[in-house]
Every structure is written in C-alpha cells, then in structure tokens.
Design a protein around this nucleic acid. Structure first.
Lengths: 195, 195
DNA sequence: GAGTTCACTCTACAGCGGTTGACCTTTGCT
DNA sequence: AGCAAAGGTCAACCGCTGTAGAGTGAACTC
C-alpha cells in the first residue's frame, strides 16, 4: 500500500507497513478472536501480501503475541490506600479501554482468553494475578486473598460486559454513572468485613 | 461403541448414541470452544463415525446449538425480595455449574460467547438480559437498570474466573467462602443507594 | 553507475476439517 | 422368509488456511 508519500527511507517504509499490519491485526483479533482471523484477511486489510506478515512476525502466534497486550496498570493501583482502590481500579479500567491502540490490544487479549491457551495464561497469571496482588497488598482481615480475587473477577466481568459482549445497560453507561454504581460495590469488598 | 448390552430396540440404540455424541460434544465445546473442537474429535471420543454426527445434528452449528445451553434460572431469582437476591443469585450460579450435564452445557456456552456470534447473542440477550430483568424487577431507586446490569456482569465475571479461567483464589474457594465474600458485595448493589 | 541488500510479491504446497453420497448391516414388519 | 427402513460406516471431495521458496524491483553503498 504505502500511500503516495515520497522519498521514504527503507526503514521508514518498513516501520509503516509493520505498523499497518499490526493495526489491522489488532483490529481483527479484537473483533473476531484468534481462530477466526486469518493471516490473509489481516494482510488484505493492511494492503499487503500474506507472506509479508509471516516475514515480519514469524507465525500467526507471533502476530497475536505482538497484537494482544495488557499495558501496565496505573501506579495509582499500587499505591492507593484501600479506600481509594475502587476509584483507582475503575479509572484504570476506563482509561485502558478507551486508549485507541492499547484498547484494541486489551480487547484482543480478552476476546481470546477463553479459547486460546497463551491468552488464557497471560490473562490468568499476568492480568488477574497482578490485579489480585495489587489489591491484596492493601487489604487486611480474613479472606484477603479471596476478596482480592473476587475484586479482579468483578473488573473482568465489567470489562467483558461493557467492551466485548456489549450488554445494553453496562455498555451505554457513562463513566460517571459507572463510578456511581460500581464504586460502592467495590468498597464492600475492600472494607474490612464490618461486623 | 454401544457396549455389549443385548437386545436394544432401535430407538433405544439411537437415543444412546445420540446421548453419547452429545456428551462428547459438550465436553469438547466446554473444554476447547467452538472453533477448536472438530467433528472428527467429537465422533472419535464418542466412538462413532464423523458422518453420523452430521446425520444427527445436521451441522457443526447444530451440534453446538444442542450442546451449549443455559438452563432456566431458579424461581428464587424471580421471586426473591431484594434482600434475598444475593443469596439466591449465588445459589443459582453454584448449583448451575456443579450440575454434571448442565454445567458443561453452561461452560460450553460461556467458553465461546466471546468468539461465536450465536453464543454471544444468546449470552447477551437471553442470559444477561434475563438476569438483569430479574434483578431490575426487584430494585428501586435511580440507576436501577444499570445496577441490574452490573449485577449480571459481576455474576458473569465470577463464573468465568471460577470455572473457565480458573483463577487461583476464586476457583479454589468453597461455597461458604464465596457466600461470605460475595454476598456483601452484591448487597451493595441491591440496597438502595444509602446516600 | 554497478552491485548488493532489503522490502515485498507470486505461486505453490500440504494438511486439516466440514460435509456428502454411496454402501453395508441390523432391526422391524408382514 | 423376505422386504423395507433406519442406524451406522467408508471413502472422497473441496475449500480454506498457515506456511515456504523463488523471484522482482527499488533503495542503499561504494
């Protein structure tokens, strides 16, 4: 493809096509999941030959690994006091998915995390356990580990309902509404079990 | 297959092999998702020729439709007072997934609900919206619809973390521990927002 | 300005997987 | 017994998809 821009250095060309391929791949993986996206479709969308995709990323697995990613969680998740955790976690979720590139990468990971072994491992060990650890560190009292795990599960359920399944009331809600409804819920997890 | 039982009527034979195929299919779909399970594998596991599967269920989609299902929710979900909803919902979830056949059918549906169009539709429109409606009917106050939707999202997140992704602290917890940790959380959603 | 390198394309292979139609074999009816 | 029907098998087709290898033309080097 390479629009009619002139005088592109070789490396510049390479970077552009590589970026184009990656963008198409992210979109395809985020939309259709790993199994349903074909190298050919990605290549066509990027205006490129299928074989070129292989040359750049080695294999479909390699392309997926480069496309599906979970950006670092915000520092606020790690440093927040228990009382501030709910807000920090929701902010982290919202900003992560609204980011244009990172959002699709995150969606691509989630989309396949129930059916693709590597995506499942990343989701379980990296995303969920990191989340859990961050929350658990701030918790006290009994069931701290389980409460942290449930915290992570809730965030995952919300993300999937809002961005992947697109369940009506959740995917249409504004950020404010979500804060209003979800934060009290998370607070019930984070606060030491009253009584 | 057809173990060495004697004198089976034709219809009886048919029922048995059909049941064997369905059991294998449920297991395969629940374990690997729609795209990764092959008719051939299902047939082999059931000790049957692949073509027979087609004859019984018409197509892979038909087999999936027969395998992935979401049993009716317990009446308690529909008749519970708001204060009892959390317990009813958790009981519904736990008993649904521990049921030997229904559990795999439910897992099969969830496993593919992010990547298979029909499964996604069923999950969104039937499961989530029914759940939401049941909860919403019991709620009052502002954001009732959204709170009901978030309620459904939380249940989905828990199910996936526990039965599909198998995230450590959540999948190892006993029913009692889950009740102890999750119910207060749901109560925060169900109770009218205490200003 | 000639040769090399590198991005890129074309063509083809090989395997898999859903699906089909012809065939066999046992059951049930008369 | 004999015929029809239904459960079940076998072999094959056909399209798709990941992947590999040879080739091409433009960009860089000297």
């Amino acid at each position: 493809m390479t629009t009619e821009g002139e005088h592109l250095t070789r490396e510049e060309r390479r970077r552009r096509t590589e970026a184009a391929i990656l963008a198409s791949a992210r979109h395809a993986f985020a939309t259709s999941g790993f199994e349903r996206t074909t190298i050919r479709a990605v290549a066509a969308d990027a205006g490129v030959d299928p074989a070129l995709v292989m040359q750049h990323y080695g294999s479909k697995e390699g392309l997926f690994a480069a496309s599906a990613a979970w950006a670092e969680q915000h520092e606020s998740m790690l440093t927040a006091a228990p009382a501030d955790l709910p807000r920090a976690a929701l902010d982290d979720l919202l900003s992560r998915f609204e980011d244009p590139a990172g959002g699709e990468a995150a969606i691509a990971l989630m989309r396949s995390c129930l059916t693709h072994p590597v995506a499942a491992r990343v989701m379980r060990d990296d995303v969920m356990c990191d989340r859990k650890a961050a929350v658990e560190a701030a918790l006290e009292g009994p069931d701290a580990a389980l409460r942290a795990g449930v915290f992570a599960a809730v965030m995952m359920g919300l993300s999937m309902a809002r961005y992947l399944l697109e369940v009506p009331p959740v995917c249409d809600a504004t950020a404010e509404e979500l804060h209003r409804v979800v934060e009290p819920l998370l607070r019930a997890l984070v606060e030491p079990p009253t009584a």
